[in-house]
Computed example of a mutant assay.
Amino acid sequence: MRSASAKMMRAVLVRQFGDVDQMKVERIPIPTVRDKQVLIKVHSSGVNPVDTYVRAGQYKMLPDLPYIPGKDAAGLVHSVGASVTKFKPGDRVFSSQTNQMGTLAEYACVDESNVFPLGSSLTFDEGAAIGIPYFTAYRALFQKALAKSGERLLIHGASGAVGIAATQIAKKHGMYVVGTGGTTEGIDLVRETGADEAVNHRDSNYIEKLMEGEKFDVILEMSSHVNLGHDLTLMNSDGRTVVIGCRGPVNINPRALMGTEGSIIGCALFSATPDQFQEIGSAVVKGITDGWVKPVIDTVFDLEKAHEAHTAVIHSKGAKGKLIVRVQE
């Protein structure tokens, strides 16, 4: 379908990797939908830390310049390619693109395999908060840590978007969850999300508090550059620490792994195979249908303020859910 290609849309464009001042709203042609793609009229776009790493040019996989930032979106199907069978114009959908860019725009072309039904129970803002957070949390728990019902889970950074998703998924699957946050509001949110216990990771003795209780079978680590050394002392026998986030090097003592025969496991959503990605998508869509996928929105920005969202997702004093850019009503 090429009828939309002559029309224009607003989009955030990055012409050079660098700081947020490289993000400019411009008018560019609406992309042409290809054979196995879905053209989404984007209502809301989710902002993730990885988006800032790409924009800064500090990521393993970088797009060609210029590019439109953003991986997560929710909106209505505008048109579909000739070989698309799962969606039709007007469907409410969300998307998560692992190897493509382009959701900070009024329209986004997404491969059909990366588009999923949103249903009617969630808003578009909530739909844009699903992709990377929920998919990453599921992959970390079940495809990497092989978590099981009854195990004890520690989530470092449980008030952030991935932490909230991980808490909901883990509780649904019968795990005991201890979550950390860095503010009073964050701690309250960790409890409201369903964690069995909440700990303030800015307390000077929070590690000692954690050590006083039972140790953990699985640890999800959003700030491994700060916490990884401690994590190795908090694991049960055969414990697994999954590294989800890191902003620099860290010193650890591998001897701490020997007594427990514990494991440190890296997790990156873009490394998922197509079959693994579809497994995750199916599980999350079922969670939407069953009603336990409940994204939490922190702040909503206009498209012209997308650069402020990029700043906030890295430099906020305490995460309280997902940051969203509302592209259009």
Rank of each mutant, 00 (worst) to 15 (best):
S282F: 08
S121D: 09
P254H: 07
K36W: 15
H230I: 01
D125T: 11
P89M: 08
M61C: 05
S223F: 06
R34D: 13
Q276R: 04
L303H: 10
A268P: 02
D238C: 04
V54D: 10
T167I: 12
V300D: 14
F277M: 15
G81H: 07
L154W: 03
V293D: 05
N251H: 15
V327H: 04
I130C: 05
P254Q: 08
P133C: 01
L141S: 13
V325C: 07
E308T: 08
F87D: 07
A158T: 07
V285I: 04
V33G: 06
E308Q: 14
A137H: 06
G90R: 01
F17A: 08
K7Y: 12
I40N: 03
A74Q: 02
E197P: 02
I30G: 08
G259R: 12
D203E: 15
V296C: 06
S83R: 11
E151T: 10
G287E: 01
Q58L: 15
I280R: 00
V12K: 03
E197V: 06
S159H: 02
V33E: 06
Q100H: 11
A108F: 09
D91T: 04
V12W: 03
I252A: 13
S237L: 09
V84A: 05
K317S: 15
D125M: 05
F124Q: 02
D275K: 14
S83N: 14
V115L: 09
A283P: 01
T136Q: 05
T193E: 00
A56I: 05
I68W: 05
R202M: 07
G182L: 11
Q58K: 15
P89I: 08
I40F: 03
D21F: 02
K294S: 13
S149T: 14
G262A: 07
D217G: 11
I155E: 04
D64H: 14
V42Q: 13
V50A: 07
G239S: 00
P274T: 06
A272P: 00
D35I: 08
P254N: 10
P249E: 12
L303Q: 10
G281Y: 01
P117Y: 10
V93K: 00
G213Y: 10
K322Q: 12
M175N: 09
G160W: 01
V20G: 10
M23Q: 12
A256D: 15
Q168I: 00
H201P: 01
M222P: 04
D196M: 03
K24S: 12
S45Q: 10
